[in-house]
Amino acid sequence: MYAQEVKSTGKGVKSLDEMEPLERAFQEKVNADIKIEPKDWMPDGYRKTLIRQISQHAHSEIVGQLPEGAWITRAPTLERKAILIAKVQDEAGHGLYLYCAAETLGVSRDQMTEQLLSGKAKYSSIFNYPTLTWADIGAIGWLVDGAAIMNQVPLQRCSFGPYSRAMIRVCKEESFHQRQGYDIMMKLCAGTPAQKEIAQDALDRWWQPSLMMFGPSDAESVHSAQSMAWKIKQDTNDELRQKFVDQTVPQANYLGLSVPDPDLKWNNEKGGYDFGEIDWEEFFEVVSGNGPCNADRMAARRKAWSDGAWFRDGLMAHAHKKQARNVAAE
């Protein structure tokens, strides 16, 4: 999802009997749903997996501001503009909650920033697609934030305390994001034929990338088992994807839009929709840096970081000077 490239140890999951006493005590706590806090002992793999997952999640929130931010100056009304600013500001806030949660594990903010800017750390593939029309802002809120909620609700029960608490805050705010997106879609679909057409076009372009947000299929995802044993992850990628499709198709029907998948069909037996194969080749291309906007997104983040350097340093220099003056006056 927001951490599509998380790699854990790659070894199989150990049984309690195979563990050393410290690790065993740790796993028993996790099994009993007792939260792990930053200063508690934890296996190295647990720490590394969490640092990678939480920092990728944070990077996704930060980079995620870019596609939507591009429409702030072009929002159709003043009210829509104020709402979009509030939404993009929330994404910045979510990134900050998450960076702080990762920092409790011993990685610094600057290290994480450096990993993002050097391309070493990933962010969600979804933010490498362009926002071509106003309807894309509707589709992102409805589909992308909808998929994010699907993933983040179970993360509220994650075994690591700071991540779980950050997710609780995020989830409280996320529902506004999805609703404002669906509201834009409803308005467009009740509008002129041209407005309805851009709504359909946005759904056509965002549907597949939204399904990819849940990450590779379970059969391909080698890291799931360990993350699930550690209760970093509660549901498999395919389970969450299925839930998302089942929830979203009726919402598309309500709008009078058609989901761009000829294989989409209700399956009475499983009580859910069957849907077509996802273009995984495209997914891996985008994750590895070759999506339509990867270069733009990274350039924007690097520019923001380097353009802001004098300002960050200036404020720090001012703080040091003020502190020195206060000490001298005492």
Binding site: Q89, D90, G93, L96, C100, E103, R165, R312, L315, A319
Partner: peptide, 21 residues
């Protein structure tokens, strides 16, 4: 929660933006 800021005054300002929207 927590946040980064150069001094106490800005920490309050940032806290206003990050934690009381």
């Amino acid at each position: 929660g927590s946040l980064h800021a150069p001094d106490a005054e800005l920490a309050i300002n940032h806290a206003r933006d990050v934690y009381t929207r």
